[in-house]
Amino acid sequence: MEDKTINILEQYPNSGNDSLIPILQEVQDAEGYISEKSVIKIGKHLDIPSSKIFGVATFYNQFRFQPLGKYHIQICRGTACHVLGSATVLSTLEKHLKLKAGETSRDGLFSIEVVACIGACGLAPVICVNGKFHAKVTDKSIIEIIENYRKENDESEK
């Protein structure tokens, strides 16, 4: 199997610390998340300790350390969504899936990502699952939405 991280690193010969964030971004784009193995490879390439890379990566919200779920839920926590109750939606979602933002469920089905604004303030509070928008979400409808996806998955697996 081709190694995506190595392929990316090959694009950055003789690079230093300043290439770390672009590399992390590309690796995440290619693999969906930053894996332990990728961090070690990046560290070797740039001669940066893995603790430092992890430190930098955890500083930014954009990096994830678990693979994306089959259904990747982006929940907007921008101003408009906040005013209309996205905090409750998020906490309901987290409780329902027993997950925290940035994590992926054990069965690999769901993952949650908090985003600042997805430019759909008219639909607030809004979530986006695999690119599909759900408007005016409430703490009740969010559970329905999730369970519909679960059903969809169950049926597709039959």
Partner: peptide
């Protein structure tokens, strides 16, 4: 020259931790 630990996370969530905690 070991760097086993570094700052992890940001703001009020910051802790000193190892790689991948």
């Amino acid at each position: 020259g070991v760097s086993a630990i570094d700052y992890v996370n940001r703001g009020s969530q910051t802790i000193i931790g190892t790689a991948f905690n």
